[in-house]
Each structure stands twice: as structure tokens, then as C-alpha cells.
Design a protein around this nucleic acid. Structure first.
Length: 565
DNA sequence: CGGATTTGACCGGCGC
DNA sequence: GCGCCGGTCAAATCCG
């Protein structure tokens, strides 16, 4: 429940590994809020994030809250004032400032106005009254700023709620549209098949065997290859029938054993055989290939974790465990149980080379609304998969598109994205273990029938974040999550002109790539979710993740912790 | 007692 | 054709 996983995000350096395992232990063993005053997290994209800022004395200082952030910003320079500041800060912590009424604020403002006239008075004759007045002034200023920020936060939260609601509605519409379009597309495909069969003297496949009926598919074996995918896309709550007696009905209709002919297993299975079937089908065309690939696209996440499974906000039910060849650690199979009939599955296995690394492989797209905690991972994996597939689908620019994809997904230098060359399906691996990967290539995508390719580093020499927005952007940049990085990359290009200028100098083609990536991203529905999550994480404070009172004991790295179910 | 997990069996694909 | 392997099922078991 409180097992978290997330990212070690260091805004001051990029050399430290990401101790995901320690994140879990932190989240498990440091739930005492009393110890977390200095480790309050800002959830970024659903991941509560601890921010650190470089202080004047060279050490990292965690931004513990908005109050702390602002109090620190108003930090007086002199030691005497520093004591006052500490007093003010303590007052803030005690929330006395919150209870101050508006009248007090006005008084403070007046004092602030008059205080400048008195600033010429010799410090040596400063009295307690002046100190008091200075405190009051500072207090009032802080309060005004706090109130302003509170109102701003309130507005932003309202906006976020609106955006989130819109996104959910759009997501449902998208699912419905995809089903509808898929149905139409398959009819076109089948019409072509009919023409082909006719031209070669083959029989005409009865149309009624090619379409969906009542949420299940009455499929002739001859055309099951092309229409199996149809059942995948139609894997909506209508598939609930599968759990009941419908399965037997389908078994009987197919006249086979039934297990692998049931819609559930055929649509949700992710063995290579199914895709191969589709690829070998006589009715194969680009569309069918695309759909087959789409169904089989996988997103693998490598993260350090001592837990048996990372928490990604979704509910999973284990349905199997196998010993995989070449790995002493068993591979566990999970399916999403947040909605009946959800086709999403995942495999969890420890890395054979480094057992502290947990490899989680996701396949499929959720057919149901996701909680905010699950939105980040789902959006990330979905975006990575869809963008990977968009690259794999563009046969004309088989090299260029993946490059763009790779650049877009994992632009930062320490990110690792790999695919097994032998993998039957396009799989993107998001490596959150950072430099634990012995692979010297900063980024590799491996697709079937394509050699792995590399993309250059984007953020070499990136500037240290100079403000909160930049820090957040830096977090995105270093987050290793494709969706986050995509959105961040665009944002940072506006936020940090200097940095992007450097990038352009280093990568002359970057501008084009970013433009193309921008177009791709903005057309991606997941972008909305990522953006919403980003806004939420920044303004939502602990609300979105109030069950995360986790402490990061790592003095150097800030941690984004990911609360699960 | 119901839901989740475990685990042996089963199945299909693939390579030889 | 046979064996290996990955993926899945489902009865048995566990657990809260």
C-alpha cells in the first residue's frame, strides 16, 4: 500500500544513480510525519517529489513547503535578521500567520511602508520595538504573499479539476471512437480480402463472420487472424461476458479446446504466436500490421526496488508465475483488475544480472478511467508505446521516426531506453536505474528487424535550475518518464532559453526534432493527462498524495515517490 | 467466507 | 515429430 517507487531526482547533479529500492524502503519505514518536516514532497505528475535547492552555503536544501519556500526566499541576509527570520518561520510553522486577520495585514503593510523611512536609523540604536516592528512587517508581507498564493492555488486547482474532468470524458470518447473506427477499418480490410478471394477464385468469406456481434466475435477460423484484433479493440466492459457463461459459448462456436480461442485469452494474451499469426495472414495489410503491433507493444520499466512489485497506482491480480529461462528469478504475471475485462497486463521479474533491479513490462491500454496515482505511469507507458508504434508504423522513414521518438521520449543524457533485438514486438524500456546500466549507449531502441539505433544526448551541460519552474522542468527532464520528459522538453525550451540555445548549438537538428516532437505530443491525448498531472503535482501539494508522508534520507537526491494502492 | 495467491497442468509457437 | 519455452488457466490454498 505504501510501497512507493519513483525517481531520484537530483537538481544539482546528474551523476547519482536512482536508488528506487531505497525509495521503497523510505516509503515503508519513514511514515512518521513528525520526521518529515523537511521532506515534504511535491507530487510531480502523480509522483510526489522532493525538491532540493542549492543554498548559499553550497548545500542542498529541501523545499519543504510553500511556506518554507517563501520564507526562505525572504531570508534576510544579516544574522540578526536571520534570527528574526527564524522566529517568523516558526510562527509560520505554527500557522499563527494563517489565523491573522485582514486587519493585521493592513497594519503590517502600513508598517512596511513606514519602515523604509526608518531604515536610515543607525543599527546600533535599534530597539526591541523596532525589531518587533520589523517582525510584524515581514510577517505581514509573508502573509500577503501567502494569501495571494493561496488564492492562486485555488484557481489553479479549479482549473485542474476542470481539465481532469475533460480528460476523463475525452478518454472515454476516445475508447469508444477507437472501437468504432476499428470496426470500420476491419470492414474495409475484410472487403479487400473478399475482393482478393474473389479474384483468385476463392470463396467469399461470409460477412457476418467478420463482424462483432453482441460484444463477442463470431469468427470463422479462416479469418480469425485478422479479426482477433477486433476483439481486442472491442475489449470493453462488454467483455464481461467472458467471465460468465459466454466463454463456453465461444468455445463451442470455435469448435476447439476453447482456452486460447476465448476472447479473453486471445485478445489479452501476449505471446508471439498471436502476432505472428496476424503477420502471416493472407489478409495482412499495413493496417492489420499496425493493429497487431499496437496490441503487442510493450513498455518495460527497469527500477531498483526491494519490493516484489512496484506500485503504479493500478490494481493487479497475479495470475501466474513462471521460471524464465536464463533468469534464476521467477517471472510473475499480473492483470489489471481495476475494471473487468481490462486488457492490460504486466510481467514483473528481477534482473538476472542485478537482482535489485525490478523489470516491469506493461502491455495494453486500460479501458477504464484511472485514478490520479495511476495516471502518470499509465500515461507514460501508453505514450511511450504509442509513440514507439508510430515510429514502427512509419515504414518509409524507419530510421528517422524512431530517432525522433527516441529523442522525444528520452532526451536526457542519463536515460536508458532499450529494446531487445530479439524481441518479437516493439518494446521500449525505460531504465530508471540510471548508470546501473552497463550499456554505454545513452539511448537505444530496438525493434524487430531493425538494428538498435542511438540518439545523441540532449541535455548535456544543462543549466542548474534557477527557479521553481525550472526546478520542476528539471525534474521532468530527469524523470526518465517519457511523457514527463516530452512535456518538459517543450516547456523547458521556453523556460530556459539559454539551455535550449546550448542544446541547439550542440544539436543543429534539434529544433526540427523538437518541432516534430511537439506536434506529435500535442496530438497525443496522453499529453493532456501528463500536463494535468504536472499542474496538479505543483499546486496540489499533499492533497493528491496525502498518503505519502515518506521521507527521503538521501541527503543528496530528491525523490519523487510514487504511491500505489 | 470471499478475494487473492500459489502452483501444477495445459496449450500453441517455434526451432531442430 | 518432438521437445523447449512463454503464457495462461484453474483448482487448491492462503489470508484477512
Amino acid at each position: 500500500m505504501d510501497k512507493g517507487w519513483g525517481l531520484a531526482l537530483d537538481t544539482s547533479s546528474s551523476s547519482s544513480p536512482i536508488p528506487i529500492s531505497s525509495l521503497n524502503s523510505f516509503s515503508r519505514h519513514n511514515t512518521n510525519d513528525n520526521n518529515n518536516n523537511n521532506n515534504r514532497m511535491f507530487p510531480i505528475l502523480g509522483f510526489p517529489v522532493n525538491l532540493t535547492r542549492n543554498t548559499e552555503d553550497g548545500g542542498d536544501r529541501k523545499i519543504t513547503s510553500e511556506v518554507d519556500f517563501f520564507s526562505d526566499r525572504n531570508k534576510p541576509s544579516s544574522s540578526a535578521s536571520h534570527e528574526q527570520h527564524q522566529h517568523v518561520k516558526s510562527n509560520i510553522v505554527k500557522k499563527e500567520i494563517i489565523s491573522t486577520d485582514e486587519k493585521h495585514v493592513n497594519t503590517g503593510l502600513q508598517l512596511a511602508n513606514t519602515g523604509s523611512d526608518q531604515s536610515v536609523v543607525d543599527d546600533g540604536v535599534s530597539s526591541d520595538a523596532e525589531n518587533k516592528r520589523a517582525k510584524t512587517t515581514e510577517l505581514a508581507q509573508l502573509q500577503v504573499e501567502l494569501q495571494r498564493m493561496n488564492s492562486e492555488n485555488k484557481k489553479l486547482k479549479e482549473m485542474l479539476n476542470h481539465v481532469t474532468g475533460n480528460y476523463t470524458a475525452l478518454q472515454m470518447q476516445l475508447v469508444a471512437l477507437m472501437q468504432k473506427n476499428h470496426h470500420t477499418e476491419n470492414e474495409v480490410v475484410n472487403a479487400k480480402a473478399e475482393e482478393k478471394n474473389q479474384s483468385v477464385g476463392g470463396g467469399i468469406v461470409p460477412r457476418q463472420f467478420l463482424s462483432i456481434t453482441n460484444g463477442t466475435t463470431e469468427v470463422d477460423d479462416q479469418v480469425s487472424n485478422s479479426s482477433s484484433d477486433e476483439r481486442t479493440r472491442s475489449n470493453t466492459p462488454m467483455n464481461n461476458q467472458i467471465e460468465g457463461g459466454t466463454r463456453d459459448h465461444i468455445r463451442n462456436n470455435n469448435g476447439k479446446n476453447g482456452r486460447d480461442d476465448s476472447p479473453e485469452s486471445e485478445t489479452q494474451g501476449w505471446g508471439p504466436n498471436k502476432a505472428q499469426k496476424i503477420l502471416n495472414s493472407s489478409n495482412v495489410n499495413d493496417q492489420a500490421n499496425t493493429e497487431a503491433t499496437m496490441r503487442k507493444a510493450r513498455v518495460s520499466v527497469r527500477a531498483r526496488s526491494e519490493a516484489s512489485m512496484i506500485s503504479d497506482g493500478c490494481q493487479w491480480r497475479k495470475y501466474g508465475q513462471k521460471m524464465a529461462k536464463g533468469n534464476p528469478c521467477p517471472r510473475a504475471y499480473y492483470r489489471c483488475t481495476m475494471a473487468v475485462g481490462c486488457p492490460v497486463r504486466k510481467q514483473v521479474q528481477r534482473c538476472a544480472e542485478d537482482k535489485t533491479i525490478l523489470v516491469t513490462t506493461y502491455e495494453g491500454t486500460h479501458n477504464h478511467p484511472l485514478p490520479p496515482a495511476a495516471m502518470a505511469m499509465a500515461s507514460t507507458t501508453s505514450a511511450a508505446a504509442s509513440m514507439l508504434l508510430s515510429g514502427s508504423m512509419s515504414s518509409a522513414d524507419g530510421i528517422m521516426t524512431p530517432n525522433l521518438l527516441a529523442r522525444a521520449i528520452l532526451p536526457c543524457s542519463t536515460s536508458m531506453a532499450t529494446l531487445s533485438a530479439s524481441a518479437p514486438f516493439p518494446t521500449v524500456t525505460l531504465d530508471l536505474t540510471q548508470n546501473s546500466n552497463p550499456n554505454p549507449n545513452p539511448l537505444q531502441f530496438q525493434r524487430p528487424h531493425h538494428a538498435p539505433f542511438q540518439v545523441p544526448n540532449f541535455f548535456q551541460g544543462q543549466q542548474q535550475p534557477q527557479n521553481f519552474a525550472q526546478a520542476a522542468a528539471s525534474l521532468y527532464n530527469q524523470s526518465k518518464f517519457s511523457g514527463l520528459q516530452l512535456s518538459q522538453e517543450i516547456g523547458s525550451s521556453h523556460l530556459t532559453t539559454q539551455a535550449s540555445t546550448q542544446q541547439q548549438q550542440q544539436q543543429p537538428s534539434l529544433a526540427d526534432s523538437v518541432s516534430a516532437a511537439t506536434a506529435a505530443i500535442t496530438s497525443d491525448p496522453n499529453f493532456t493527462a501528463v500536463l494535468a498531472a504536472a499542474i496538479s503535482s505543483i499546486i496540489g501539494g499533499g492533497h493528491a498524495n496525502n498518503n505519502n508522508a515518506n521521507t527521503n534520507n538521501n541527503s543528496r537526491s530528491s525523490i519523487s515517490n510514487f504511491s500505489g494502492n
